[in-house]
């Protein structure tokens, strides 16, 4: 067995090469090269293609620390990421449980389809549909007032809750899918055994199901947290005047003022902070998985 493993990497890599090469070539081309170009830009005073003189500098990174502005923004983006992840877990986990353990056959397929349906529509379309629902005189407002006996005014548009709603909607399928996979792998007889030994439903959930499903929950949380911290489209469209986040400021640097070096530096600081957070959390994560 030991010999097998030792020989494995060497003898195994050659036949695997034709299978691996396309993916790695593609990753090198599509991710590594642009990313290293951006890393290069982030140390420049100006883009070489602007025709102006340029030199190397760390000014762009210093800009992050020179005022409290970017730190405040980064902090509010991290908070946004945590909140969205939490809501996704609260909404997604029960749904995944029902999918994996309660529903069977066709009804499961149908519900599963509904969960991944959002992936089939364009992100921008989804956000603009939320804009129609959330605004004053929008769909939610009209429907609630038609049902409820008293008059209320629902105007969530251009607010922090609107950003949360839009982001949770976009990312909850990730949580459902990752949790579904781990929940499905839990042997039903384990649950039956726990029940027959006198564990209450809550105890089964707390001591059996959640610990066993933890890898899925964590994978989902990482998949959601990382992109949400850098999100810019949802905050910009749904957030109104409260919609300025770290991601929107990076977007401004690229699109509005064409200061690519600063935008790139801000992006790498975000990347570093996210990596530090994941690294700091990794002992906890490893224990859980």
């Amino acid at each position: 067995m030991a010999g097998n493993i030792a020989a494995g990497p060497l003898s195994g890599i050659r036949p695997a090469l034709p299978l691996l090469a396309p993916a790695y070539l593609w990753l090198t081309l599509a991710i590594f090269l642009p990313l290293s170009a951006m890393a290069f830009f982030s140390f420049m005073t100006d883009l070489p293609l602007s025709g102006k003189d340029w030199s190397f500098t760390i000014r762009n990174y210093a800009a992050f620390f020179s005022s409290g502005l970017y730190v405040t923004l980064l902090w509010s983006s991290l908070r946004l990421g945590l909140e969205v992840t939490l809501w996704c877990a609260l909404i997604g986990f029960p749904a995944a449980y029902v999918l994996a353990k309660v529903l069977k056959g066709r009804s499961r397929e149908a519900i599963f389809l509904l969960v991944i349906l959002p992936f089939w529509s364009n992100g921008l379309v989804r956000i603009f549909s939320w804009a129609m629902v959330l605004r004053e005189g929008g769909i939610l407002d009209v429907v609630l007032n038609a049902i409820l006996p008293f008059k209320i005014s629902v105007d969530l548009m251009y607010s922090y809750p609107a950003v949360i709603i839009g982001l949770v909607h976009s990312y909850v399928p990730y949580m459902v899918l990752t949790c579904y996979l781990t929940l499905q792998a839990i042997d039903d007889s384990l649950i039956e055994a726990a029940r027959s030994l006198g564990a209450s439903r809550l105890q089964v959930l707390r001591r059996l199901i959640i610990p066993l499903a933890m890898p899925g929950l964590i994978a989902g949380a990482v998949l959601i947290f990382v992109p949400v911290v850098g999100s810019f489209m949802e905050p910009r469209i749904l957030g109104g005047r409260t919609g300025t986040f770290y991601g929107t400021v990076i977007e401004d640097q690229f699109v509005a003022v064409f200061n690519w070096p600063l935008g790139a530096a801000l992006s790498f600081i975000l990347l570093a902070v996210v990596l530090v957070i994941l690294a700091a959390a990794s002992p906890v994560l490893r224990r859980a998985t």
């Binding site: 923004l73 509010s76 005047r241 409260t242 401004d252 003022v257």
Partner: peptide, 17 residues
């Protein structure tokens, strides 16, 4: 000037929250 204006504008937008 443009960079100065942008810094001021971003500060205003962030402090509104």
């Amino acid at each position: 000037q443009r960079e100065k204006y942008l810094a001021l504008w971003q500060e205003l937008k962030v402090n509104v929250k």
